[in-house]
């Protein structure tokens, strides 16, 4: 599964945040938006248009599945979404990729020395 999942990488920020928000629990759309805002500490705000545009694509790709409405919810219009195992695999692969990127970035930044600009010829 992971081999297939890597072919979809890298993920767009919206996709990554949506998958990430669904990783812990099943959420409805508004919940996803709130979770994304929380995860990014308010730096990344997802509008409903972008959210549902991504969701319809993720459902089609079968990374996310729709669970339908839940009884007893505050708003009966809400539908819940869940990460599929394949979606989870993709998220895991992206996390691994990002970890590599972060590791590499840290390494490079530690090794980096201040550069002295070469004198230019007139």
């Amino acid at each position: 599964m992971n081999d297939d999942a890597t072919s979809f990488l890298p993920l767009s920020p919206a996709t990554l945040h949506i998958l990430l928000s669904l990783a812990a629990d099943d959420l409805h759309g508004y919940g996803i938006m709130q979770e994304v805002a929380r995860q990014s500490e308010g730096q990344y705000k997802l509008g409903p248009g972008t959210l549902y545009d991504n969701l319809q694509r993720l459902i089609r790709q079968q990374w996310v599945e729709e669970l339908g409405r839940r009884s007893g919810d505050d708003d009966p219009r809400r539908r819940y979404y869940r990460l599929t195992s394949f979606g989870r695999g993709v998220l895991a692969a992206e996390t691994t990729r990002l970890a590599g990127v972060v590791r590499e970035a840290r390494l490079r930044l530690q090794m980096a020395k201040p550069q002295i600009p070469k004198p230019r010829r007139a």
């Binding site: 409805h28 759309g29 508004y30 938006m33 409903p48 248009g49 549902y52 969701l55 319809q56 708003d75 219009r77 809400r78 539908r79």
Partner: peptide
């Protein structure tokens, strides 16, 4: 297709 699937939910978000 989009309206049927997500219209209510988007309105619900707007209401909040």
């Amino acid at each position: 297709g989009f309206r049927r699937r997500f219209g209510d939910e988007m309105l619900s978000i707007f209401d909040q």
